[in-house]
Structure formats: structure tokens, C-alpha cells
Amino acid sequence: MRMIVEPDELVAAAGRLADDGDLLRRLADVVESAGRVGSVGSGPETARAIGSATATLGDALRVLGAAAEALSDGLGMGGRAYGDAEQRAIDAGRVFRG
């Protein structure tokens, strides 16, 4: 198995992804809030349908936010682990050469 990794880039990618969790959670809140407005402005059956749809879509956005955070955590962990291993290899090389 051939493996290539740039630990710093992984950690940076993790950092960028970490914001998605907040973003998607906030968007979920907005979707549900708009759903309440829409429900008030519609007939009974549409009101129920809007409430159900927006709650569902809100939950879906939160799940995706959690997925983004989990992926971010995983990339961060991996990046740091690779970085530590890389540093140890460098240090070992110095000792060997020394």
C-alpha cells in the first residue's frame, strides 16, 4: 500500500470543515423558524405538511452538520497523528545521522 500524506494540509482541511457544523445547525434553525411562519400563513393541511417537512429538513441539516464535524475531527486527529509520526521520524533521522 502506498501512502502519501501532508499532515498540515489535513489539519487545515479539518479546520475548514469544522465550521460546517455550526453553519448547518444555524440553517436548520432558520428552516424551522420559516416553517412556523409558513404554517401560520397556510391552510390546515398545508400547515401540517409544512411543519412536518421543515422539522424533517431541519433534523437532516443537523445530522449533516454532525457528519461534517465528525469528518473534521477525524481529519484533525489523523493529521496530528501523521504529523507526530513524521516528526519522530525526522528526530530519529537526526539521531542516526548524529
Binding site: 475548514r16 470543515l17 465550521d19 460546517d20 453553519l23 448547518l24 440553517l27 432558520v30 428552516v31 423558524s33 420559516a34 416553517g35 411562519v37 409558513g38 401560520v40 400563513g41 397556510s42 391552510g43 390546515p44 398545508t46 409544512i50 441539516l61 449533516l64 457528519a67 461534517a68 469528518l71
Partner: peptide
């Protein structure tokens, strides 16, 4: 009048449209 407010429905729809666009800016 029949039950319902077109203004509120349009406001909700507009918001959802913005959210759909905003979600597109997520890295994922």
C-alpha cells in the same frame, strides 16, 4: 377570505431558498 396569507407563504419560501443557497456554501 380563504385561510392563508400569501405574504407569509412567500416569505417562508424566500427564506428556504436562501437557506438552500447558503447550505451550498458549506465546505462539505
Amino acid at each position: 377570505h380563504p385561510q392563508g396569507s400569501p405574504e407569509q407563504l412567500r416569505e417562508a419560501a424566500r427564506t428556504w431558498g436562501l437557506v438552500a443557497a447558503g447550505a451550498g456554501s458549506a465546505r462539505i
